[in-house]
Design a binder for these strands. Structure first.
Ligand SMILES: [Mn+2]
Ligand SMILES: [Mn+2]
Ligand SMILES: [Mn+2]
Ligand SMILES: [Mn+2]
Lengths: 239, 239
DNA sequence: TCTGCAGATTAGGCTAATCTAATCTGGACG
DNA sequence: CGTCCAGATTAGATTAGCCTAATCTGCAGA
């Protein structure tokens, strides 16, 4: 009964859908997404963004403050979350049911997300058991448009000595994803922060329970998003 | 090593892919596909077809004889068969793995066929066991671009007394497909032609082995494509 | 052979989405 | 307080696809 996208509305184009997703990602932390950031994310020229921004604000999907940036309207946010749900369910389906590696699914989902029906997405979600996270640990929005907001720390920021659970891998870059996989750094892994060198130096972590160590430069450490695990013997994590 | 589509070529647009498929289907029997038949099949206006025909013949995908029609070039035929392979594998995958009914898969495949990668299609084909027929009995072209050409008779044309195997259902119309399903008329079924009334009257068939009878008007009888089964006791059909 | 017309094409126009080149502007900084 | 410039926007062009209205043409029938 909530006022989602009316079925009568003309469907959004592939471009529009990708713009809305980009704006969602860029404005999820701070307030506004800038023209040049959108342009960089979508690999188009800045004037193309200005043109699209005009159309999107005319149709009420975004708010535009000239020379400052854009934000999603409630309607635009719903549309963006719908695309993100599709994208993440597709990624998970490809890895779980069709034996894709986690570094290959993004490109495929990027195209399919625009072509699948809601029906197909819900069937996939059903056959996956209504999953909550995609292969990279990103939360899957519900069909109703809710998304989990976890506050996570990167391994680059976590305190030395902290015990962490790796939750999300914040990149779609194939080479980096493959490297993380070889290092056993995938969502769900437990670890402790053993050391950090000064002046933006590398962080050393120890995997739990194996105790294996990994040394991560700042670039990679910033991509690994973790939740803190209370350090208590024989305790149960509450998730 | 066969001279298929070079990877360097710019990818074909969704429209172009649908035009090539339409031309393939329309010219598969006779020689030329007419402008108005293409327009009807794609639900566009005839001048839109004339415009596309010009572009397609400039890029060498079709041959155009003005005021007569178009035919696929070898390159266009390869592209069309590639799309048909995608379409039919998608249809089968949706029915087999995601519990779609055979009357719902066409619309979904019509969009997805343009968005999937070759990689994904081959993974689906692999998980289906390299299938040869789609849910409607239509042959699936090979990845190399070969397609089975069976010569089939419609139930409207078959001789009274003939023993037949139902092979293909020549429609994508949901209502008709659902009706056929309720009547047990799906590919693989054996039947004999029991009677045909004159003046384009209905054909009565008997299902084998149940003996159940069905009476089919000419419109529906023409949609059911069959191969003849040699009438011999205890014999094995050679397929 | 001539005529008419169904079907094909051309003419002209529109929208979405992109680009490059030119211009504008908000805010940082001297 | 004024300048400057990175970043944003406007101006103008292009391409693919689609449309309607006007025109053309092959061929069937008189
Ligand atoms: Mn996309
Ligand atoms: Mn992901
Ligand atoms: Mn299609
Ligand atoms: Mn089919």
């Amino acid at each position: 009964m909530h006022a989602t996208l009316r079925p009568g509305d003309p469907p959004l184009s592939r471009s529009v859908e990708d713009y809305l997703k980009a704006i969602y990602h860029l404005s999820s932390q701070g307030g506004f997404a800038s023209t040049s950031d959108i342009a960089a994310m979508l690999e188009v020229a800045p004037p193309s963004v200005s043109g699209m921004v005009k159309r999107l604000s005319e149709t009420g999907l975004i708010e535009h403050v000239p020379y400052r940036g854009v934000q999603l309207s409630p309607q635009g946010r719903r549309a963006a979350l719908r695309m993100i749900r599709r994208h993440r369910i597709l990624e998970l389906y490809l890895t779980q049911q069709l034996d894709y590696d986690w570094d290959g699914v993004h490109a495929e989902a990027e195209r399919l997300e625009h072509a699948v029906s809601d029906e197909l997405i819900e069937r996939m979600a059903g056959s996956l058991g209504q999953p909550r996270y995609d292969p990279h640990g990103d939360p899957i929005p519900t069909a109703a448009g809710e998304i989990e907001e976890a506050d996570l720390v990167t391994i680059a920021d976590a305190a030395v000595g902290a015990k962490l659970e790796l939750r999300q891998v914040g990149t779609q870059d194939s080479a980096r994803l493959r490297y993380f996989a070889t290092q056993g750094l995938t969502p769900g892994v437990l670890l402790t922060v053993a050391d950090r060198q000064p002046f933006n130096g590398p962080t050393t972590i120890a995997l739990v329970p194996s105790g294996d160590r990994r040394v991560l430069g700042r670039e990679l450490a910033r991509l690994l998003l973790c939740s803190e695990v209370p350090v208590q013997e024989h305790g149960h994590a509450d998730r």
